[in-house]
Design a protein around this nucleic acid. Structure first.
Lengths: 116, 116
DNA sequence: TATAGTGCTTTCCCAAAGGAAAGTGGAATA
DNA sequence: TATTCCACTTTCCTTTGGGAAAGCACTATA
């Protein structure tokens, strides 16, 4: 029997897009990845590089990103102990997404300002 | 005086990325845009093409997308009245983002399954 | 000894997101 | 007349996100 759906299936695109959104969801994950990929390693450096982020949120998001193997938490056993956050190679695979969002965001802001 | 920041600035990228995220945030906006761009026009068709979405959420997100000029609500004055949702040309500018997310999502799923 | 910095954690709170289920009003269909 | 379809709306509730502020263990510095 044929299927009786009256709509056009778009699951081929919707499903992988949702998978991606689940990993990089929320306001902060991509900004944090960008900051770490730029070279910020220390907790407070990352915090100061992202206006508005609070330490609670940063700590939580760093844990999430670690679980997804996008960044690595490195403990340096000096006195005093240092903690560094470094991008994992897998983070590089996000570059096309970041570039696309950056390009769109720049253009969007231009569009908004032209209007008003 | 020189600036005394100890962190590396990444605002050039973080700011436009945040602008983009603000427009397409949440779980549903991109799936809805994909569905409409695929050719689904009717409320129930869109709803059925996106597993798990509820009418309340769909109605709210459609309004948001209309405000951002990504889709258009068209009223057809037949008997009975029909309401169609159509993509605006501006929605096409999201294609690079959607493609990047789709590619990443497909690869991510492959990576996850290989591991387990 | 007092102060400052580091990398968080804890508590409290609020707003937004989102799910479940039922309802609604008009028009078409059986 | 009863049912169904369409495009939502309404209500209720739970979860999640996120902000403010304080605290804390440790070390270094004055």
């Amino acid at each position: 029997m044929a299927n009786k759906m009256g709509y056009l299936s778009c699951l081929d695109t919707v499903k992988p897009v949702r998978d991606a959104i689940e990993v990089i969801n929320g306001k902060w994950k991509l900004p944090i990845i960008i900051s770490v990929m730029t070279g910020n390693e220390r907790f407070t450096d990352i915090q100061e590089s992202i206006p508005g982020i609070t330490p609670k949120v940063l700590a939580k998001e760093l844990k999430d990103l670690e679980q997804h193997q996008l960044i690595k938490r490195v403990v340096i056993d000096d006195y005093p102990v240092k903690i560094l956050y470094r991008p994992e190679p897998y983070a590089d695979t996000l570059t096309p997404i970041i570039d696309a969002l950056k390009g769109w965001g720049l253009n969007h802001r231009k569009k908004i300002f032209e209007k008003e």
